[in-house]
Amino acid sequence: MLAEWGLGEWVLAAACAFIIGVSKTGIAGLGMLGIVLFANLMPAKLSSGFVLPMLIMGDCVAVAAYRKDAQWAMLLKLFPWTGLGVVCGYFAMGHLTNAQAGAFIGTIILVFIAVHLIRQGTKPRSSGGTRVGGPSALRKATATADQKTHGTGFVATFGIMAGFTTLVANAAGPIMAIYLLAMRLPKLQFMGTAAYFYLLMNCFKVPFMVDLGLINWESAKGNLILAPAVFVGTLIGRVVLQKMKQQLFEMIALVLSVVAGLNLLYRSWAG
């Protein structure tokens, strides 16, 4: 497959790899754009395995950059449900067409966003952006209250869907973005928590992808060629995040999640 690529395909693949890198350290949710573009270069199911090593590389850089900001209490509640979702996705993989998977995941993303907006519309918001030194007292109090009100059912729903969607279509990004936005985490805690979540989850997926034949020697060689683009993207992403205000960060994450959901639905209908 890769032997058939010309210069245009490799340039597009490098741009996608760069976008994935930026998303891991800077702009939450942007990675779905790279994943969608990769799905236009090869069959969607093959692309999910091809992209995975690049995602893991970006995750490693993100963990190194934001390791002190991760909220482990939140992650430990989420991981068992995410593992269950990955297993469900593994067994569903052979029974879902690309169109069915896209329609299902796109609908779930948009429903989650709608519920999130309805819930947040009834709660007070903190004013102003959050600087890299720490969140405001109001934001801390609001975030703590939100995290306490989200019970086991809420965590289980997001965890299972994140695991399922990541195995089927590498589409956990919007699901996790909505989850972390619901927790009202400051941007550094958002990125640090997401970095560890994605790294551990993506590594957990590797044996399943190998067993399904979606990661192989050919895809590994392609990943080695594209690795520098991922790394450069992670460096740019970190600079972008440092300059971005909290409110803008949240708005971009939410908008990109909406775009991802709509894109999945459109592609399922068009296909």
Score class of each variant (00 low, 15 high):
51 V>Q: 12
73 A>N: 13
5 W>N: 07
186 P>R: 00
43 P>V: 01
163 G>V: 01
9 E>M: 04
217 W>P: 01
41 L>E: 14
226 L>C: 10
39 A>D: 12
254 L>T: 02
207 P>W: 03
95 H>A: 15
213 G>F: 08
246 Q>G: 08
240 V>A: 06
216 N>Y: 03
188 L>D: 04
213 G>N: 08
230 V>F: 06
192 G>K: 00
179 Y>T: 01
119 R>P: 09
29 G>D: 03
27 I>D: 11
160 I>E: 05
97 T>C: 08
198 Y>F: 10
75 L>E: 13
99 A>G: 14
26 G>D: 04
156 A>Q: 06
198 Y>A: 02
142 T>E: 12
161 M>S: 13
237 G>E: 12
30 L>M: 13
147 Q>L: 04
236 I>G: 02
98 N>F: 03
19 I>C: 14
80 P>N: 09
132 V>Y: 13
262 L>T: 10
21 G>H: 10
90 Y>L: 00
191 M>A: 03
106 G>I: 06
191 M>W: 03
44 A>Y: 06
46 L>A: 15
228 P>K: 08
57 M>A: 15
58 G>T: 04
38 F>E: 06
205 K>W: 02
242 Q>W: 09
102 G>A: 11
18 F>C: 10
129 G>H: 14
53 P>S: 08
253 A>F: 03
126 S>T: 08
195 A>Q: 01
157 T>K: 10
264 L>T: 03
161 M>F: 11
168 V>A: 03
189 Q>L: 00
101 A>N: 05
147 Q>Y: 01
73 A>D: 14
57 M>S: 13
12 L>E: 13
14 A>R: 09
140 K>G: 01
19 I>T: 12
76 L>S: 03
150 H>S: 11
148 K>Q: 15
216 N>M: 07
219 S>Y: 13
94 G>T: 09
24 K>Q: 14
49 G>I: 09
68 K>Y: 02
133 G>F: 15
249 F>Q: 10
109 I>Y: 11
216 N>H: 10
268 S>T: 11
58 G>D: 07
240 V>C: 05
98 N>M: 11
243 K>G: 06
29 G>R: 01
41 L>H: 06
251 M>N: 11
52 L>S: 07
1 M>P: 13
50 F>N: 05
127 S>R: 05
112 F>G: 08
163 G>T: 00
211 D>K: 10
112 F>C: 07
186 P>E: 10
65 A>W: 08
74 M>P: 00
48 S>N: 14
242 Q>E: 14
31 G>T: 09
114 A>R: 13
232 V>E: 02
146 D>P: 04
176 M>D: 02
38 F>W: 07
185 L>W: 04
115 V>I: 13
14 A>Q: 12
140 K>F: 00
80 P>R: 06
204 F>R: 04
106 G>L: 12
225 I>A: 15
124 P>V: 02
193 T>K: 00
82 T>R: 03
118 I>A: 09
263 N>E: 00
2 L>T: 07
238 R>K: 12
147 Q>P: 02
178 I>K: 01
64 A>F: 11
154 F>Y: 12
